[in-house]
Design a protein around this nucleic acid. Sequence first.
DNA 1: CTGGATCCCTCACGATACTG
DNA 2: CAGTATCGTGAGGGATCCAG
Lengths: 212, 212
Amino acid sequence: MAARNYAEYCGLARALELVGERWGMLVIRELIPGPKRFKDLTQGLRRIPSNVLSARLKEMEQAGVVERRVLPRPSGAVVYELTDYGRELDDVLLKLARWGTRSLGEPRDEDTSSPAALLLGLRSLFRPEHARGLRATYELRLGETVVHARVDDGALEVGEGPADADVTIESDLRLRAVMAGELSPADALRDGAARVQGDEALWERFPELFAI
Amino acid sequence: MAARNYAEYCGLARALELVGERWGMLVIRELIPGPKRFKDLTQGLRRIPSNVLSARLKEMEQAGVVERRVLPRPSGAVVYELTDYGRELDDVLLKLARWGTRSLGEPRDEDTSSPAALLLGLRSLFRPEHARGLRATYELRLGETVVHARVDDGALEVGEGPADADVTIESDLRLRAVMAGELSPADALRDGAARVQGDEALWERFPELFAI
DNA sequence: CTGGATCCCTCACGATACTG
DNA sequence: CAGTATCGTGAGGGATCCAG
């Protein structure tokens, strides 16, 4: 570890040594919503080889970014979670995600999107100033990826899995086009790019709340 | 290019495909102060192989992050500069640098620090609220690395090379210890970790303005 | 001299199989 | 489930070479 060094006395270079190796920041992305098991991580990061995941977790643990914890009995499960230091990267990942989203073209067939990826995307695109006075819970379903988002007057709270929602949106990766303003919510419904259950007005407002 | 894909439909993954490969963000760091020639880049990034630098520049040019430009005659020199899109990463690099600085230990003998690295470090550690009412120009000399910083009532402006400064500080990588509060400015002078010409009170105030 | 391109070697990554 | 073991490939590292 750290064998692959930049040999620069620079905070940025150091940061990249800690979390800049391949898959590193994506592992952190997966851990932002909360502690996860090894298996959960491999499911969120479909293409990561298990030995690489293992290596990254060990390196980041040593770097003080990630903590390995064994749950108390009877569970006994092993989970990984971000340390406080690691969690401070949240803001960086948010900004990087927003920046990179502008270069996201049309989805390819092999593209996947984990719950953690979708949550980061939602948070990175949320516009508090357009959510004034609104209080609503969205449930989003993209294939097997299910997440929810609570908007409360400029504040956003998100989580993996379903929720007791005011509106449930079932869509796919074409959801990006809606958020980019390339496809209107109404057209998305007509094209079958989205199906909505519940308060349909909230769906109309969706691309205003989360805009690329 | 992009053969090394994450196959994830996620802004963060896309960003990492564009600038997350080895040396990528460090090249951007070098370009933040302004356009640079290939040779300048190899000098700022001492350990980068020329073929890797060449590859990163080409990839980032294609990604719309970097622009290759040939200066008008008689210069005819080739320079690389950030596009507007690339410059938007400034804030990300700043935050990553600040985060990583906390994991910077003592400098190793082989460690270097380019002007661009030092400038990013200064900007990332600057505390505007501690610079109220102050107007001063610092010149910093760390070996061959010379930069300057103008503080003007909460605003900071930096640049490579010397300047007409109120105070000139000649130090080395031990400067980090001063900014971390591990070594007082007075002790640094006594230990020979720093030499100061000009307004010595500005040196006393330095670790307050730029703190880890 | 700058601005790279080329060559070769090594090692990290990727794929897969396997174990406690 | 939580990883480790093995092995092939290709990107990165280092040196050299070449064209303008």
